[in-house]
Design a protein around this nucleic acid. Structure first.
Lengths: 193, 193
DNA sequence: AACAAACTATCTATCAATAGATAGACATCA
DNA sequence: TGATGTCTATCTATTGATAGATAGTTTGTT
């Protein structure tokens, strides 16, 4: 898909709206006003709201995976990788008070078309897998305790970051995101020798 | 307020709907069908949707505080208290696939009337305070490391549990909630001596 | 005790606004 | 010409909310 195309422009705007107001909180008419075309034209590119959400969630998930590859390549240690990972979410928060797209959609899971939910599930799985990989590397490198429960810790990190975004956005306490993530990574890295 | 009253009945039904579908995901007409009165009658008791949400969130927050008092009195150790605390959220998940009311509302913070948001903020503050109190007790009792950052850990616990609920509900992986909370409490309690 | 007034709680009917979605017309471009 | 992408017009359905009618209950007065 050509990133200069109108469909792409629609998806960018939709991503922002979903991250800000959620699936039930945005409409095609909101989008049409933002972009400057009529809502019927949005239907041309994305026949239903669910189609749009699937496309946005898929693009988000795939884009995130690519970002994680880059991140992984640029991090010398697991701690660095985790810090950079958390920084992705922090950056989202600092951008128009957004939260993770899939976290936002997940909170509305009862309202989601099944295909959208499939995408969010997949997103979470991919995050956990990546985090587990980073943690395993950290164990092998001696950065983390040898008895670290990698699977549980990966799930813990993801839950924490998603939850922290929601709370921080609600309360406006901007420092709390890093307070929480730093504390978590300190605990995970184990006792200082 | 008489718990047998219609207003109370409305609030019980509204609580469930918000916990399941969120603020934007339920309507007065959904409620009216559930309860068996017309939506105009709900307006009689709660003039606006925001009024209803404020009342539900306030009742939830106050009820939660009372529950925490009982919980605290029945726990011999901080670990027990934390486990019981997590069990509250687990129980919510196990009930109609609900999540924490204030967590759900918080995810829709952009759509909330300000008074509702004030309630969720207050809820989170109260949770953090209670958790910090438990953690402090645990340090004094020698259950937790003396250098535990109480404030950060309290925020961490809350973020984790809220995030885990959202992810678990989305993915349907029922065991993950306790996987995450157990791992967190293990980390917080520090190294086995 | 009887009655009227006030209160409570429900209803019908309705409104304005919005939302997802559709069909066909139209203009541009390859 | 056919494909693409936008538009107008419209539809059904829903939503939060309002005004006034109605019925039952409670309170106050005689």
């Amino acid at each position: 898909m050509n990133t200069g195309s109108k469909a792409h422009e629609i998806m960018i705007a939709a991503k922002k709206m979903i991250q800000t107001s959620g699936y039930n909180g945005f409409s095609f008419r909101d989008l049409s006003r933002e972009i400057g075309i009529k809502s019927a034209s949005i239907h041309y590119h994305f026949p239903t709201k669910g189609d749009l959400a699937v496309a946005v969630a898929t693009a988000y998930r795939e884009g995130f995976s690519e970002t994680l590859l880059d991140l992984e390549n640029g991090a010398a240690t697991t701690q660095q990788a985790l810090q950079k990972y958390a920084a992705l979410f922090q950056k989202t928060l600092d951008t128009d008070q957004r939260i993770c797209l899939c976290g936002m959609l997940a909170s509305e899971t009862e309202s989601l078309p099944e295909k959208v939910r499939m995408e969010t599930i997949r997103f979470f799985e991919e995050q956990e897998q990546w985090l587990a990989k980073m943690l395993s590397k950290g164990i092998i490198a001696g950065e983390l305790p040898a008895d670290t429960n990698v699977t549980a810790s990966a799930k813990l990190i993801l839950s924490t970051l998603e939850g922290a975004m929601i709370i921080v956005r609600n309360t406006g306490r901007r420092n709390d995101f890093s307070t929480v993530s730093d504390q978590l990574f300190t605990l995970i890295s184990g006792p200082k020798i």
